[in-house]
Nucleic acid binder design. Structure first.
Length: 486
RNA sequence: GGCGCGUUGGUGAAACGGUCAACACACCGCCCUUUCACGGCGGCAUUUACGGGUUCGAAUCCCGUACGCGUCACCA
């Protein structure tokens, strides 16, 4: 039988990295099987927490990441509807709740919240609700329901014995039934709770592998009791530890940095983000670090998912993002970063050449414009002290000498190509008995006015063109002369 | 508080009883070099939360303690 997994978010806001990672893992588990099916189900049973537009963010994010679902509200499928509120209208949950009650796995409960609170009030430490409605005979309960009395459906849990299950990540877990409380399955408003809707839908949609956060680990035994009451097969469980913001707290929707959309605006690539979060909590069996989605499918193995929370490290993401940027061929890299180049460079320079000098340096997209600001704005009012560089063995006086020499040879170049500039400029240090750096470092500085830039003197001069290079050189020479005279 | 889960360097982590505890990020040096970066090389846990036990041998198994997280909602 083919593997079927689902990603079941509730549309309550942004998609954060922890969520996305759960989606990724569910996707990988499904696609590991060539026949595997990945399903998107929207869990909107909490009508009070719905956030408008949240569903679209989910669609958009999955799409950007290439996590295409085979079934879902927008793409259809044979197990629909894929939105829980629509399933409520179809009566699916209530029908199953009634079935479960008849099988003894649940019961009607007429307690109001006040009486539960009162019981809690009167109990000494360790409150566990004891439901008096458990003992109401079924016919009587059904009659009260029929008469219109408000009710909830509550799970009936055996007071003795133990329940255990196997988790692919955490192993075998056993709990005493006595510690399990009888959770509400159908709320007073007729909507199912998350737990119940989940069980029913997972079964009806024939989910074989349940991938979810480990916060559900403690309610899993209750799930299994319901599966057993129904006589249904229990799925494989894959509980994932949380993605943490720091040592103590999980990544939260409040923390804007954690949302996928924010990472996009911060200049990260979807592929890199996916690559990174795959590695957050899961480790491959080889030392390979860069993975395309297809490579992840190939390498993924649930038994290498870790058991403790992993702190989201933007440094590592940045590094991986840089690797993705660098491994692209120049044409696609240029196509990708063109908007960022254009936003900083309005003058008519060769964008592709600029892309080439940027490619080995940029780790994120947003840092690109700042790197390139010198192309459009140059004025020789920077500090002459910038020319003093210990490693290059330069100071303003040496720089002035080099700049003049460079200007003299450069002004006669007729064919302004990188090769020619290279040849001409590198002849200079030899002639002047200087080190390469003593000539080229000042030239680069003179035409950019910046301490550090992407690209060296030759590459930048090439891009700037002869006229602009000479203009900038001249301005810098004048500035240096004035400074040295003073 | 009950129950469950966890604890390897600043971070992600490998090692599934057997040499000096991989690797990557970050950090620090050095090299390369026309700056920065890229790339290369090296450093960075005398030790795997702590205490016992089992064993010829433990990060790895057992027990206890501490700490952390989760759960105990008519939220998901």
């Amino acid at each position: 039988m083919a593997i079927r997994t689902r990603f079941a978010p509730s549309p309550t806001g942004y998609m954060h990295i922890g969520n996305l990672r759960t989606a990724l893992y569910a996707y990988l588990v499904a696609k590991k099987d060539p026949e595997g099916v990945f399903i998107l189900r929207i869990e909107d049973t909490d009508q009070g927490r719905l956030v408008e537009g949240a569903t679209d963010i989910i669609y958009e994010t999955l799409k950007q990441c290439g996590l295409h679902h085979d079934e879902g509200p927008d793409v259809g499928g044979n197990y629909g509807p894929y939105v829980q509120s629509e399933r409520v209208r179809d009566g699916i949950y209530m029908d199953h709740a009634v079935k479960l009650i008849r099988r003894g796995g649940a019961h009607y409960c007429f307690c109001d919240q006040e009486s539960i609170a009162a019981q809690k009030e009167n109990s000494t430490d360790g409150f566990q609700f004891t439901d008096p409605c458990r003992s109401i005979p079924l016919e009587e309960a059904e009659a009260r329901v029929k008469a219109g009395e408000p009710f909830v459906v509550r799970q009936t849990i055996p007071s003795e014995g133990t329940t255990s299950f196997d988790d692919e990540v955490f192993g075998h877990i056993t709990v005493d039934n006595a510690t399990l409380d009888e959770a509400v399955l159908i709320k007073r408003d007729g909507f199912p709770t998350y737990n119940f809707a989940n069980i029913v839908d997972d079964h009806l949609m024939e989910i074989t592998d349940v991938v979810r956060g480990m916060e559900y680990l403690s309610s899993t035994p209750k799930y299994n009791l319901i599966y057993e009451s129904f006589g249904w097969d229990i799925p494989r469980y894959i509980h994932c530890p949380p993605v943490m913001k720091d040592e103590h707290s999980k990544l939260s929707k409040r923390n804007g940095d954690a949302s996928f959309q924010d990472l996009m605006t911060k200049g990260y690539l979807p592929e890199a983000v996916l690559n990174y979060i795959a590695l957050l909590g899961w480790s491959p069996e080889t030392e390979q670090e860069i993975y395309t989605i297809d490579e992840l499918i190939e390498a993924f193995n649930v038994h290498h998912i870790g058991t403790n929370g992993a702190i989201f490290d933007i440094n590592k993401l940045t590094c991986i993002n840089g690797m993705w940027l660098r491994k692209m061929d120049l044409d696609s890299h240029y196509a990708l970063i063109k908007p960022y180049i254009d936003s900083a460079v309005k003058s008519n320079f060769d964008g592709k050449k600029i892309a080439a000098i940027v490619q080995v340096r940029a780790n994120t997209l947003v840092e690109i414009p700042e790197m390139l600001d010198f192309f459009d704005s140059f004025s020789a009012d920077y500090s002459p002290e910038l020319y003093r560089n210990k490693k290059m063995k330069t100071d303003p006086a040496i720089a002035l000498e080099s700049l003049k020499a460079a200007y003299d040879v450069l002004k006669d170049v007729t064919d302004w190509t990188q090769e020619n500039i290279h040849e001409i400029l590198l002849a200079l240090p030899k002639k002047m008995e200087r080190k390469n750096g003593q000539v080229l470092f000042p030239v680069r500085l003179a035409v950019t006015g910046k301490q550090t830039t992407p690209g060296g003197a030759i590459e930048i001069a090439d891009i700037l063109g002869k006229e602009e290079t000479l203009r900038r050189l001249e301005a810098s020479i004048r500035m240096l002369e004035t400074a040295l005279q003073a």
